[in-house]
Write a protein that binds this DNA or RNA. Structure first.
Ligand code: FES
Ligand code: FES
Lengths: 172, 172
DNA sequence: TCAATAAAAGATATAAAGGTCTTAATATCT
DNA sequence: AGATATTAAGACCTTTATATCTTTTATTGA
């Protein structure tokens, strides 16, 4: 590289006039909002199993997420009835025991990211359509369906339990 | 809804003061740049199999993508040696026959999106780490590995051939 | 009923992705 | 050599995602 561009970080590249030029888009399966949302929900589930509510402060501390942004996401999850919120002293977020048993990962993902991840075309055609498939359709739908099945079958209880027993973690 | 917010489209929601509030992030497996990049590469491969070059204009027409943006993506792919570009009259983009045989889908994805999609943690922890796994680690890595394998095994030739025979499509 | 606490709602700010436009470089043909 | 065709490079603009800050609403308990 003989020119004067400046690499600020892995993601930020500026040229000599300090204009942003290009960096690989760090694509992810779920949006950050959804990642925080899943982690927050799992923490709340874990606390709820112990008969406790989780406050916003506790949540953001335990999952290492930005507080105000996490609040917004929890609002969404409360509207979607994934979690229940309680205002005032000793308030916070909770999930009913029977919901922890029955709720699936897919409900959280749906509430935040919608279902495009397992319905949309892998190459971005308007919709996935087996009658007029894109070149990756067959290979892609197989993986997408596995993802869909996994999300729809995985219960909150199972994930919250592995957290409780210290087998898995929400931050590092 | 008794308030005055205005739903402009599926993705754009404004409140009474015309401030953007919130909409589900349409998450996708690959970035749009990557989707266009794959589609463009497949079209170029198909033309190359017929001994022809593909011009930017022809590409954007055939894959239905924004011209200037597609040009940027093709620049990236040329730098990554996924495609070869030729300037001047009768110029355009091409892929050597032997590369069409050997090149895998993963090379295109890597050139544009990098490898986070099959290396990163599904819940957004700094890195995926089996020693201190997140709650979805085991279920997630299984799917991610299937995706990785699929991308690494799928050859351009196979996809370009299915296009040529009219079994699959790059736009609709 | 009042102070304190905690979430909801709203406004605004910043960063990244997606996209356009203009000029430069390079190849081809006459 | 000059006109033309085509991609490369750079600057810039727009939209969406991510994030923060401020004000309002609900709940509790002294
Ligand atoms: S049409 Fe592209 S994935 Fe189904
Ligand atoms: S640690 Fe989260 S996917 Fe491996």
């Amino acid at each position: 590289m003989t020119n004067q561009m400046k690499i600020i970080s892995d993601k930020i590249v500026l040229n000599k006039n300090s204009h942003y030029i290009w960096a690989k888009s760090k694509s992810r399966m779920f949006s950050k909002a959804c990642e925080y949302g899943i982690r927050a929900t799992l923490y709340i589930a874990q606390k709820s199993l112990n008969g406790q509510r989780a406050s916003l402060k506790a949540i953001t501390h335990e999952i290492d997420s930005p507080e105000a942004f996490t609040a917004k996401i929890l609002q969404q999850l409360a509207k979607a009835q994934v979690v229940r919120s309680v205002k005032g002293p000793h308030g916070g977020f909770e999930i009913a025991r029977e919901d922890i048993d029955s709720m699936r990962l897919s409900e959280i993902v749906n509430a935040i990211d919608g279902d495009n991840i397992y319905k949309g075309c892998g190459l971005g055609l308007k919709a996935c359509n087996a009658q007029k498939p894109c070149p990756v359709h067959h290979k892609f739908t197989a993986i997408r369906n596995d993802l869909k099945t996994m999300l729809q079958e995985t219960r909150l209880l199972e994930l919250a339990t592995s957290l409780e027993t210290g087998l898995t973690f929400l931050k590092r």
